[in-house]
Design a protein around this nucleic acid. Structure first.
Length: 850
RNA sequence: GGGUGAUUAGCUCAGUUGGCUAGAGCACCUCGUUUACACCGAGGGGGUCAUAGGUUCGAGUCCUAUAUCACCCACCA
């Protein structure tokens, strides 16, 4: 097949992926060890962004590498219903149509979102294919699939039975815009400029007033106490007294509690149990009443005085301040910087509200997880992430798993209509009302937090507990994911994995950094700096995107998208393409079997290939993706293309060329699957069908090279490089290289002539011209030596400083005494070489002084 | 307030357990179309490795401070 001059990925990629799929190349078939990765399921509704491309690229490299190694590799794809996320997107769409979620029942809403997600799912799967992700589609799992829902129910039941689940009236983080509660971890805190108001609360006995400081004056309507620190002498006499709460006619106590920070504000704190987490705890300790003055819509309730009712929180703040000012209760106000929780989706300020919700008691789950981490059962890349995770788990609070949205897995719990605290577990969630033992129960209208069900992902997708998949592939070999879900997802998978299966869910965790925008800032739609993965693929090809995005990227380090790296990637693919084009043109007539190295270049190349292959293998075994790519790049470009292929134009070994090409393509395949497979498919049909796909071929075993012959080529390279250097620096035109006695030059005259761009290499009786100094051969380049004087002087100076440093090191007795023998020997050798070098340079330089 | 990471060439970044005369790609300069490739080839310039101390025969690499930036955590009323 005649290949065009330039590789055009658009013409091949989709066909190649179809070929892989049709051939079942991605089914776990290897006979070796199991190697399993599940894709952290992206939102089924969203278009693939560049961060997903990075994740898939890294995982796919690992999977393809292990597949080529002969491992039984499972790459399991999935998609996430992403409960709240997706509902929020859907609500935006409803809003555009002038509708809202309140126009529908939960069931109607659920059905509509289901259809909405189904529409977008095709798009999502297409993008997986575009990126070349070698996933086994037969294992595709959606987070609302029956088996995932069932697993969530069984987990909930087990926790229920074992007392880890409780229903409690607690303060939860509530978004009044979206009408749902969140887990602590979902709240986004921002540092904001606010005001701190100092308000006088007069003592009931008329003996004065106590001044409290607050950033939320409107919540005073729900105050049920004032707290001071027990050791705070300023307030000693106030403890036990009562104050008259302004704007209301309630009397509330002044009490002492350790939590108060004497240095903050006035050292006296208003206690609003229903709207502040701290105050909630204080109230529980002191048995204070809870007065809810803000409702789920973010408006003031009937518990407040008439004039404030139904105002929004913002309006109420102004009204309260105005009323307090009129009454003369405001002492002063000042600006303060404090952090405020927001809904991560809409930015609405999170209201802490008291609600009845399902909570998971986390301590019993966290402890075994901490133990496993401390025992090093899971290897982390980078290591520091393990310690971070331990710190997180050690401070974990109970997890609110109820969400007041439609799009999610219904919580399988029913409440006795006649007895509020009688809850039962039942999976008949399609029923609203059920009868059990003659009693009537109503279903909890809430759904699970998405993370509750997805925390079972590693074993639920593998059909825990009895399937072959589970037995073969659990625990997963690798969990590769972004740092942003280390806490919400990785930590919970670990806890639930240990809780349900008794085993860690994965053996290794690799955390990648974010792909930032080109300017290094975070990508966001509103800033308009989002980099589109499909556009990059369209322009440069999927391989270029994969290479560009992994190049030079260390684990867990955020880095901006860099177009230049993608261009490098494209150029690299094109280089490979042309290497293949050249080699295929040289191997038209079949040279089967004759792959033995003959020339020194052959041996040299095999040695280099072996070094590169070993290095790449080692790097990939420890997920050093970028380092592996770097080694590959330089082997292909510098050694294979620039030296070996150029040398092969003088004396070609077609059989070896062909086999080197195969090995190179295999080494490259995990990184750039499309171009390598495309080239592979241009090879003449093999009778052996097993080898018809590169994707399922074998990681290369490299033939042994003769080190002496390889060294001979190094000597040739040194001569060629020096000739090129001299020619370039003095602008000579095709000089001749003379030698007196040299087998090396005699045997490789043609090669050196060609590589160095000489007129000829020829033997003479006496050398003339400029003597080469970088080789032990006696040879002279036929150029005006005087023109090279300056360069020689510069080189001499360089040698002098090298020698000086080496001598200083060797004359240091403690160095010779303490450094390892090999290092000292190496230094000695370096010094010898440097001296020899200097002698040659000096001799050559001396000739100009006559 | 606590924690983690970063700080290396004009730009984006590598640099594994301390042995480096500190690397890559891009950009820049000079030369070049030799029948794989201009998405190319040959050659070149460019860095007191943030700062200050310390450990060591030896530090970009380890330790301690400091500065700047980024992110994460926390019950700053």
């Amino acid at each position: 097949m005649e290949l065009p001059k330039t590789y055009t990925p658009q013409d091949y990629e989709s066909d190649i992926y179809a070929l892989w799929e049709k051939s079942g190349a991605f089914e776990p078939k290897g006979k070796g060890n199991s190697f399993s990765v599940v894709v952290p399921p992206p939102n089924a509704n969203a278009s693939i962004h560049i961060g997903t491309a990075l994740t898939l690229a890294l995982q796919d490299i690992a999977i393809r590498y292990h597949r080529l190694r002969g491992d039984k590799a499972l790459f399991l794809p999935g998609a996430d219903h992403a409960g709240f996320e997706t509902q929020a997107v859907f609500e935006k769409r409803l809003a555009k149509e002038g509708k809202s979620r309140f126009d529908f029942t939960r069931e109607e809403l659920y059905q509509q979102i289901w259809d909405f997600v189904a529409e977008n799912r095709a798009n999502f799967e297409k993008q997986f294919r575009q990126l070349g992700a070698s996933v086994d589609w037969s294992h595709f799992t959606f987070t609302l699939d029956d088996k995932i829902v069932k697993r969530a129910y069984q987990t909930f039941k087990k926790m229920w039975d074992e007392g880890l689940i409780y229903r409690g009236e607690r303060l939860v983080n509530f978004c009044t815009f979206h009408g749902t509660a969140f887990a602590d971890i979902e709240v986004e805190y921002q540092e904001e400029q606010g005001k701190l108001w100092y308000i006088n609360y007069p003592l009931t006995d008329g003996s004065g007033a106590i001044t409290i400081a607050t950033t939320r004056p409107e919540t005073m309507l729900g105050d049920t106490a004032v707290a001071v620190h027990p050791d705070d002498t300023r307030y000693e006499n106030f403890i036990g007294k009562t104050v008259k709460l302004p704007l209301t006619n309630r009397e509330i106590p002044v009490l002492a509690d350790d939590f108060v920070d004497v240095k903050f504000g006035t050292g006296a704190v208003k206690i609003t149990p229903a709207h502040d987490p701290n105050d909630f705890e204080v109230a529980r300790r002191h048995d204070l009443p809870f007065i809810q003055i803000i409702n789920h819509e973010g408006r003031i309730t009937g518990e407040a005085p008439e004039e404030f009712r139904n105002l929004t929180v913002g309006q109420a703040r102004e009204a309260v301040l105005r009323a307090l000012k009129e009454a003369g209760n405001i002492d002063k106000e000042k600006y303060i910087s404090h952090s405020v929780g927001h809904c991560y989706k809409c930015g609405t300020v999170i209201e802490p509200l008291i609600m009845n919700q399902w909570f998971v008691d986390m301590q019993p789950l966290a402890k075994p997880a901490i133990k496993a981490l401390k025992e090093g059962k899971i290897k982390f890349y980078p290591k520091a992430k393990c310690d971070q995770l331990i710190a997180y788990l050690e401070n974990l609070r109970d997890w609110n798993i109820s969400r007041q949205i439609a799009w999610g897995i219904p919580i399988p719990a029913f409440q006795n209509v006649d007895q509020q605290d009688d809850w039962i577990f039942d999976e008949r969630v399609t029923e609203e009302i059920i009868e059990v033992n003659g009693k009537t129960y109503r279903r909890d209208p809430d759904v699970f937090d998405t993370w509750f069900s997805s925390s079972s992902w590693p074993y639920a997708t593998l059909d825990y507990p009895d399937s072959d998949d589970f037995k073969q592939f659990y625990p997963l070999s690798l969990m590769e994911t972004g740092g942003e879900i280390l806490y919400p997802w990785v930590s919970r998978m670990l806890m639930l994995g240990l809780y349900i299966t008794g085993e860690i869910p994965f053996k290794e965790v690799y955390i990648h950094g974010y792909v930032m925008a080109e300017d290094g800032s975070k990508m966001s739609k509103s800033k308009g700096n989002v980099v589109s993965a499909p556009e990059i693929i369209e322009k440069y090809g999927a391989d270029a995107l994969r290479l560009g995005i992994i190049a030079g990227r260390a684990p867990a380090v955020n880095r901006g998208y860099d177009k230049r790296k993608v261009e490098d990637g494209r150029n690299f693919c094109n280089k490979l393409w042309n290497i293949a084009r050249y080699i295929e043109s040289q191997t038209k007539s079949e040279q089967k079997g004759k792959t033995d190295p003959i020339s020194s270049a052959d041996h040299w190349l095999l040695a280099k290939l072996a070094t590169a292959g070993q290095g790449i293998t080692k790097d990939l075994d420890s997920y050093r993706f970028s380092e592996a790519y770097d080694k590959l790049y330089h082997f292909v470009w510098d050694e294979l293309a620039d030296w070996y292929i150029e040398a092969s134009k003088t004396s070609s070994n077609p059989g070896l060329l062909a086999s080197v090409l195969e090995a190179t393509l295999t080494l490259t395949h995990p990184f750039a699957p499309f171009v390598t497979e495309t080239i592979w498919q241009t090879f003449p049909e093999d009778n052996n069908d097993d080898n018809s796909l590169l994707a399922t071929s074998k990681w290369p075993k490299i033939a042994k090279a003769d080190q002496n012959k390889a060294a001979e080529f190094e000597a040739i390279k040194a001569i060629v490089s020096e000739c090129r250097d001299i020619i370039a620096s003095i602008g000579a035109n095709k000089p001749t290289l003379y030698y007196t006695e040299s087998d090396l030059l005699a045997n490789n005259a043609k090669l050196i002539t060609k590589l160095a761009g000489l007129a000829a290499v020829s033997q003479v009786r006496d050398g003339e011209g400029l003597r080469l100094t970088q080789t032990i051969e006696n040879c002279w380049l036929d150029v005006d030596a005087n023109a090279y004087k300056k360069q020689l002087e510069a080189k001499l100076a360089e040698q002098d400083s090298i020698i000086e440093k080496l001598e200083a090191r060797l004359s240091n007795p403690s160095y010779v005494k303490n450094a390892p023998h090999a290092v000292v020997e190496q230094t000695k050798q370096q010094l010898e070489e440097a001296k020899a070098q200097q002698a040659k340079l000096a001799a050559e330089h001396d000739r100009f002084n006559h």
